[in-house]
Design a protein around this nucleic acid. Structure first.
Lengths: 303, 303
DNA sequence: ATTACTGATGCAAAAATTGGTACACTAAAC
DNA sequence: GTTTAGTGTACCAATTTTTGCATCAGTAAT
């Protein structure tokens, strides 16, 4: 185990756990030891970092400043290690990316596989996060990069590239609508719908489109899991929606297919790829970012 | 003693000393202990930081990257401590300033005194440095701020303010030239001169002025110490040169007085005040910088 | 050849850290 | 009210880590 910054890592763990005892468990040490580490840090700074509550601890103002520094710091050190490993010849490091569910089945596995063939020593970590959680992961340095669809607030988010995403209807290959190459929204509304919950961007665009027509459509099936929705439409007349990046590249042999919906009926959304503003990426993360940005710009219309 | 970053501080000390034994002495520990600390750091990074030479150690490529990070790091931590102390009510911290000798007798003592009445807890450190050494002190984070007269290379130097400095002749109050209020260069050349060595900006401007007239003037007395030169002219007909900022504000009761030389005869020089480019100053240093910049802009013509 | 300096290593003593336990305290559950 | 479950913290012995000392091996200048 890494001994550098051990105290800072402990403080970070306490801040994340919200309790010394829980943090101690996560770190596999006794609460008393961790407590003394914290007190020794506070003594050195001559300032309290956490306020002690009956149910745990919480960062105070000084702690907020410190934790921000600690996380910047730890991330910077990763970058330095990455740089050093880089000039030692063999590339090492790790990249963590927070992204919408839509990227999980096809896009990211393909890209990571391609990336790993060039940089086999690099460890890639994928965190599925909804729109707000992805930004939170960037903010607390849990993730280096994020790909989010239709984010709510985009403060502190530095976009590398933003691409437009058409909405597609996803259905069984034997579905009546499968014969058409392009669908109208009204075609879809004649069939039962299986949609993501309102937390997701696709659903939000769908609700906007139906509101505009003064139709309030309730889906027959709702789920947080895109994978479940994709599986649910098999062998039924259900229809679900998905953005381009979440579709398989080659559908000829799949049991589930997709058809684009004309843009007049339902607006296309924006997929944002970027990192925390002001953050300096490690060599590993920067290379991965470059690859993703290139692929996205090749495949989709960038704005 | 501060235990955080202890290993990084040790590495920094070794880098500065160029030898483990000498660094160990400076740190008041045994060379063996320090050596093992270094080895443990290198083991964690899985990279050598120093190349071992028969006469000591020297940073290798990886070490250069690391030492830069370490120094940024230590300086950042100072800034954070300063911020934390700031919101705790009582201000604490330290400011280190590298400056030309001319600032030592009057300007800096006055400014520091004023600064300390407002911020009594802040420790101020003054390092007299010639033009190149001042920039080196900024670069290796030894100093937060620098005031240099006519610097050679100004790369990585971020100027806060630059002011013009007239050259003055400094002499005993009974000197024949003391009757005049403004001097010509040829007046001065009729008397023996006591000048700084060629490393200093005033001397450089003087040499340029005399070269332009195809006169090569050799000073009777040369010294590295501005204070010595000022003392040397007392009760003699010697004349020395000094820039405005190095003169006493009120000369009426002094035994040594100064008279400006007309600008046509000897060009005025530039006094640069600034910090390392890209560096984020601590609260303490930033406040001091603001004060100095204000005073300089009030007293002298800024460019 | 000699001298003076360098970094590295083995070993015992010293110092720091840890785990276990008990205690005081508070919010929630009963 | 009382109980309960959870919290942070202090004390002490055991353990781990770090240190100082003496020594070795190597190199550059004398």
């Amino acid at each position: 185990m890494d001994k550098a910054f051990i105290n800072f890592k402990y403080v970070d763990a306490i801040a994340r756990a919200g309790s010394i005892r829980r943090a101690a468990e996560a770190l596999s040490i006794t609460p008393s030891a961790l407590n003394r580490r914290l007190i020794s840090v506070e003594d050195e700074l001559e300032v309290q970092i956490f306020e002690r509550l009956p149910r745990g601890v919480r960062l105070n103002a000084a702690g907020e400043i410190l934790i921000q520094h600690i996380r910047t710091q730890l991330s910077d050190f990763e970058r330095v290690k990455s740089q050093i490993a880089d000039l030692s010849g063999f590339r090492r490091g790790e990249v963590t990316i927070a992204c919408s569910q839509a990227l999980l089945p096809f896009f990211l596995p393909e890209q990571i596989d391609r990336y790993r063939t060039e940089h086999p020593m690099i460890q890639v970590c994928v965190l599925p996060r909804d729109r707000s959680a992805a930004e939170a992961a960037l903010a607390d340095f849990t993730a280096d990069l994020a790909i989010v669809f239709e984010p709510i607030k985009i403060s502190d988010f530095h976009p590398i590239i933003t691409v437009r995403q058409e909405i597609h209807a996803v259905m069984d290959r034997s579905h009546p609508l499968a014969r058409k190459t392009k669908l109208r929204l009204r075609d879809c509304l004649e069939y039962p719908l299986a949609l993501p919950t309102k937390a997701y961007g696709v659903r939000w665009l769908f609700d906007q489109a139906t509101e505009k027509r003064n139709q309030s459509i309730l889906p027959l099936l709702e789920s947080d899991s895109f994978e479940f929705l994709r599986m649910a439409v098999r062998n039924t007349d259900l229809i679900t929606l998905q953005i381009e990046v979440g579709l398989a590249a080659n559908e000829t042999k799949k049991s589930v297919i997709s058809r684009p919906i004309v843009e007049l009926d339902i607006a296309s959304g924006l997929l944002h790829f970027g990192h925390l503003r002001g953050r300096v990426l490690s060599v590993a993360a920067a290379k991965f970012a470059t690859q993703l940005a290139q692929v996205l710009s090749e495949r989709y219309e960038s704005v």
